[in-house]
Design a protein around this nucleic acid. Structure first.
Length: 265
DNA sequence: ATGTCGCGACCATCGCGA
C-alpha cells in the first residue's frame, strides 16, 4: 500500500498537478493540506474520476485537510481532540483521520496541518505548542491500539540541523526553535518512526522550498513534511520517496509529495 | 540586498498568512 502526503497550497490552484501526479505515482492513500477552500468548493469530481474516495475537512481561505483513498473508508473523523488554551473549541481545520481495510487488516492514517507558529513572539506560537501537546496526547492514545498507524502531514517542524540548508538562518524561526523541536522529539519518542530517516541519513533531503529569494533554484529547502509510523507500520516499511521533480512544474506548490510503501496488501 | 504566492475584500490594490 502506497501512502503519500502533500501540502498543495490551494487545491483549486493545484488540482491539475494533483491529477497528473496521481497518475504517475499511483498512491493508494493521499493526505492533502492547505486546501484553502470550503468543503463545497473542493474539486471532488476531478479526483473521484481519477479513482479515489474523498474525505474533506475544509475552511474558507486558510488551512483545510483531505484524505483520498482508492479503497473505501471504514471510518472518518475530523478535528484533533482537545481545546484551545482559552478552553474554546479550535476553529481551524487542521486534522482528519481515516481507517481503511486491507487484505491483511486495517491501516489508520492521521493527516495534520500543524500550526506554523510565526512570529514566535505572538500568540501564534503558544497556539502551535498547545496544538503539539494535543497531538502528543492523541498519538499516545492511538499507539495503544497496536494498529499499523501512519501519522503524516505538514508538521511545520524542522527536526534537526540536517533537515535545513542553512540552520543559522532558521535559528529564531518557529519551525526550528528548541521548544518546537523538543515537542517533536516528545511525539516521536512515544514510539513513532520517522519513515524518511529510517531509510536515509543523507543531508539535503527537503520537502519545502520558499517561493521567495530563489530558494528552489539554490536548493535552500527544509524538511517539514513527515511520515511517522507506529511499530506495526514501521515493521512493514518497504520504500520512502520525495517527489522533488514536482517543485519544478509550472505554478507549483511550495511543498512536494512524500510517499512510502507498506507491505500490508 | 532583494527576490513569492494565494485568498478575500472589493474593484486594483492591500493586508494577512505562510
Amino acid at each position: 500500500m502506497r501512502i503519500a502526503t502533500w501540502n498543495v497550497n490551494s487545491i483549486k490552484q493545484r488540482v491539475d498537478h494533483l491529477v497528473t501526479w496521481l497518475g504517475e505515482r499511483q498512491p493508494d492513500i493521499v493526505c492533502l493540506q492547505e486546501l484553502k477552500c470550503v468543503d463545497e468548493a473542493f474539486p471532488r469530481e476531478a479526483i473521484e474520476s481519477a479513482g479515489y474516495n474523498v474525505a474533506v475537512h475544509g475552511q474558507k481561505a486558510f488551512n483545510g485537510v483531505a484524505i483520498l483513498s482508492k479503497r473505501p473508508f471504514d471510518e472518518v473523523a475530523v478535528r484533533l481532540p482537545g481545546q484551545l488554551l482559552s478552553g474554546d473549541e479550535d476553529p481551524q481545520s487542521r486534522f482528519i483521520e481515516v481507517l481503511v481495510s486491507t487484505a491483511q487488516g486495517v491501516v489508520r492514517v492521521g493527516n495534520l496541518y500543524l500550526p506554523n507558529g510565526n512570529p514566535p513572539e505572538t500568540d501564534k506560537y503558544p497556539y502551535k505548542i498547545s496544538w503539539m501537546n494535543r497531538l502528543i496526547k492523541y498519538a499516545d492514545e492511538r499507539l495503544k491500539l497496536g494498529e499499523p498507524f501512519v501519522l503524516t502531514g505538514d508538521f511545520n517542524v524542522i527536526p534537526t540541523p540536517a533537515d535545513v540548508h542553512n540552520p543559522a538562518a532558521w535559528a529564531g524561526d518557529a519551525l526550528f526553535l528548541p521548544q518546537t523541536r523538543e515537542r517533536y522529539r516528545a511525539l516521536v519518542n512515544l514510539g513513532l518512526t520517522d519513515a524518511l530517516r529510517a531509510v536515509s541519513d543523507a543531508p539535503g533531503l527537503y520537502t519545502f522550498w520558499d517561493y521567495q529569494a530563489g530558494a528552489w533554484q539554490k536548493n535552500q529547502g527544509i524538511r517539514i513534511d513527515h511520515m511517522l509510523l507506529s511499530p506495526q507500520a514501521a515493521d512493514r516499511l518497504a520504500t520512502v520517496g520525495i517527489d522533488k521533480h514536482v517543485r519544478s512544474w509550472e505554478k507549483p506548490s511550495d511543498h512536494v509529495p512524500v510517499w512510502l510503501d507498506l507491505d500490508v496488501d
